[in-house]
């Protein structure tokens, strides 16, 4: 873990440049360019609001905001993972020719998506104001679930990027895993709909605690319990320890398999 901080600090300029490169390439050749990072989530939010606000009515008040409070962090997680799982293999040409620190590739993929995610919070705040939903003071608590979320994503990114070098099936499996995981997490529904006896299974989901932190502070205006906060940070730290541990152990032989 300490090693990771040292490496990240040492290569911070490279990671940042690669992350910006990824975003720049994503939005290159489009007329609106970087604005898409804001427009994309905004459009999605407007559609969701229309669908759930007027067409399908749920028993949940302001369902769009209820949904978005967890959907935005989830989208970040799933996009960052989809990008980073291919990040080592995708840079094969480079890795075979020059000595580069391998950790910068999954790292840059995650950082690029962090920027995207933070930008998507702006349209959310805008939507909340427009819908006259209260903009809770608990937003200032958001950095804590964010730390948990970013750590968990980074750990998973290292984990799957490393395995994908040896088994290319992983990138397909990750896609399936992500969609199963999405429905297994209470994102489009609330845990209150689920009979109490099943809650134990939901608690095994390491993403639950982090996602909960987002929904509580954005939608309910509440703070999670100390136990839940601790769990969300612990899941993040554990993911990094396992994911980066695996990545570091095998990074020297990546070059022979790509």
């Amino acid at each position: 873990m300490l090693q990771l901080f040292r490496d990240v600090y040492r290569y911070r300029e490279l990671i940042w440049a690669l992350a910006l490169k990824e975003l720049r390439v994503r939005y290159k050749r489009s007329v609106l360019g970087f604005l898409w990072a804001l427009l994309n989530p905004l459009m999605m939010m407007i559609i969701l609001t229309l669908v759930f606000g007027s067409i399908m009515r749920f028993s949940i008040d302001h369902y769009a905001i209820f949904l978005l409070s967890m959907l935005l962090p989830w989208t970040f997680f799933s996009q960052a993972l989809s990008y980073s799982v291919e990040s080592v293999v995708g840079n094969a040409q480079l890795l075979k020719k020059v000595r580069v620190p391998k950790l910068v590739f999954p790292m840059a993929a995650v950082v690029a998506n962090i920027i995207n995610f933070l930008l998507s919070l702006l349209p959310l705040a805008l939507l909340i104001v427009v819908l006259r939903f209260p903009l809770h003071w608990t937003w200032i608590y958001l950095p804590i679930p964010m730390v948990g979320l970013f750590l968990f994503t980074l750990g998973s990114a290292f984990f799957f990027a490393a395995i994908n070098v040896f088994f290319r099936d992983i990138s397909h499996i990750v896609q399936i895993l992500l969609s199963a995981w999405f429905y297994a997490s209470p994102i489009i529904y609330s845990l209150d709909f689920i009979p109490k006896k099943y809650h134990i299974f939901f608690r095994l989901n390491p993403m639950l605690y982090v996602l909960n932190g987002f929904r509580l502070s954005i939608y309910y205006g509440l703070l999670p319990s100390a136990g839940s906060i601790a769990m969300s940070l612990a899941c993040g730290a554990a993911a990094v320890a396992i994911g980066f541990g695996l990545f570091r152990r095998y990074q020297d032989i990546f070059v022979f398999y790509i």
Binding site: K21, R24, V25, K28, R29, Q93, L94, K97, V98
Partner: peptide, 14 residues
């Protein structure tokens, strides 16, 4: 300075 494969890290869109 490795002049092994020149431009290996170049990205065409940039």
């Amino acid at each position: 300075a490795p002049l092994i494969e020149l431009g290996a890290g170049f990205h065409h869109e940039l």
